[in-house]
């Protein structure tokens, strides 16, 4: 399986939601689509699920139009809405039959998938009485039922409480071994936990496509943070004069110093702290978190 999105653009009445977006995914990958609200994540996933047509560009799976590859795609909408009057089992049977699965196959597969998502006990309850987390898990069951080679999930955990979130994240981690996953989120932590590759999207444009390791090493933060009990202007002035110091930022009692090379420069810096009799609270070498990188990418670019 290979998913290719080729220079896709989507316009809604003059407003551009997705702009000239390209990406490719291989079998077995797990990709997190990250972006702030309104970045075009949902629109992009809807185009891949063939719910809306792109204004320009095309999306293919194994070189074939997605319209003909619907059996290969499992889609979980942002707010999965099922018929309220159907039970969980009926919902799965209905969706399964729509996917062209045989009755015999479904009779065997439905109990299995229900126990997998932890809904065995609620097989005969009406969907209308389900909680958000249960609906989301039913949605995942529905998306997995026909064993798709690509699973698309639109904000699978964003609307859930911490318990529901945990349940769904564990489930996704489990599924990841069997299928290719593309999912969107605005919560970086979720993506960090599940995926090893990220695509960051902002205002409909792709601004980053990298693995977590790449991202951390490329955006390595070379910063030393010094927390002091009281400000020492003299020392700050002295620090600014070092030729290896690139930037100094004072945030209350914290002084953040960007240097050329943390390993080589930290000793000099510490010496200067002692020299100026700075009332030191904390001397820390900052390692960049994904959150910082994300903010930096989204805000700056």
């Amino acid at each position: 399986m290979k998913l290719e999105v080729k220079t896709v653009t989507k316009e809604f009445k003059g407003k551009i939601a997705v702009k000239n977006f390209s990406m490719a995914m291989q079998s077995g990958e797990c990709v997190g689509l990250i972006g702030p609200n309104g970045a075009g994540k949902s629109t992009l996933l809807k185009m891949i699920a063939d719910i809306i047509d792109p204004s320009d560009g095309e999306i293919v799976i194994d070189g074939k139009k997605i319209m003909k590859m619907k059996k290969e795609i499992g889609y979980l909408p942002q707010y999965p809405n099922f018929y309220q009057w159907m039970s969980a089992q009926e919902t799965l049977r209905f969706m399964g039959e729509l996917s062209g699965l045989s009755k015999d196959h479904l009779t065997k597969a439905i109990p299995k998938i229900l126990s997998r998502v932890g809904l065995s006990k609620d097989a005969d309850s009406k969907v209308g009485s389900f909680s958000g987390g249960m609906k989301q898990r039913l949605g995942i069951a529905q998306a997995l039922l026909h064993k798709p080679s690509l699973l698309l999930m639109d904000e699978p955990v964003s609307a859930l409480d911490p318990i529901g979130r945990r349940e769904v994240l564990n489930l996704i981690n489990d599924i990841k071994k069997e299928t290719t996953i593309l999912f969107s989120t605005h919560l970086l932590g979720d993506a960090e936990e599940i995926c090893d590759r990220f695509i960051i999207i902002k205002n409909g444009e792709k601004i980053e496509d990298a693995t977590i390791m790449d991202l951390l090493s490329r955006n390595d933060v070379k910063k030393i943070s010094v927390e002091v009990a009281s400000k020492n202007e003299q020392w700050i002035k002295a620090v600014k004069e070092f030729n290896f110091v690139k930037n100094v930022e004072v945030l209350g009692n914290k002084v953040e110093i960007e240097v050329e090379n943390v390993q080589l420069n930290k000793k000099k810096l510490l010496e200067s702290v002692l020299e100026h009799h700075v009332d030191l609270v904390k001397f820390e070498i900052k390692s960049g978190s994904l959150e910082d990188i994300f903010l930096k990418l989204v805000v700056e670019k």
């Binding site: 619907k70 909408p77 062209g100």
Partner: peptide, 13 residues
Amino acid sequence: ANGMLAFILTRPV
């Protein structure tokens, strides 16, 4: 209104 139509049409129907 409730998105079922779009949902149904994501299946090969």
